[in-house]
Nucleic acid binder design. Sequence first.
DNA 1: TAGGCCATCTGGTCCT
DNA 2: AGGACCAGATGGCCTA
Length: 240
Amino acid sequence: MSACLPGEPSGPGGAAMAELKSLSGDAYLALSHGYAAAAVGLAYGAARGPEAARGYGAPGPGGDLPVASAPRAPAAAAESSGEQSGDEDDAFEQRRRRRGPGGAADGRRRPREQRSLRLSINARERRRMHDLNDALDGLRAVIPYAHSPSVRKLSKIATLLLAKNYILMQAQALDEMRRLVAYLNQGQGLAAPVAAAPLTPFGQAAVYPFSAGAALPCPDKCAAFSGTPSALCKHCNGKP
DNA sequence: TAGGCCATCTGGTCCT
DNA sequence: AGGACCAGATGGCCTA
């Protein structure tokens, strides 16, 4: 995504941008402002076919399978949960024979043992990838883009790139907000410690400037954001 | 039909 | 030794 941000690698991001171009309008709105260059390639617009058409979205036959893990290929379906079809057995044997004795990582094992170990490793790897996909689904759920059924799910790479840009955008918005508060405080003859405060995009108070102090009395609530009672705070101003 | 995306398998490497 | 992580290979599905 060379057009995204300074330092953005142009490798897989470039391919992802092709998909990003099809993002919905909200994603564009949410992500284009504040870092226009980053969003140039993010002007998703076209809704693509329903997820179901690609095998996404529908829970796997196992019920507890993650959404994205629903097997799409017949062969893959047969192998879910570590169970493999007879065809897969054959394939496995063929591969084993091709490697020959000792070709495998643990050639000392008996074939049966070896196969069972392989299956268990495969199952573990599958589970790991499913967990990864679950995490990606979680990420998709919290970044702004159209979640409507008519819009295709973000690809993995697009999800990561979008999330990264979203974080950067939030940090930038926060920075601007702080500047604004400092400016307003100055206008009222108040000190503006905010201006000297470094941007801490991942700090609790920084990320959730208002909600972090929701249960606190007003001065604390304001301090959670700027360090001083704010003219912007309706509680400080005596308003309800 | 080509290209993109994905799930899965597999072997290698590192860590506990 | 076993598990986690990673990257390459493979094959299927979908869209332009």
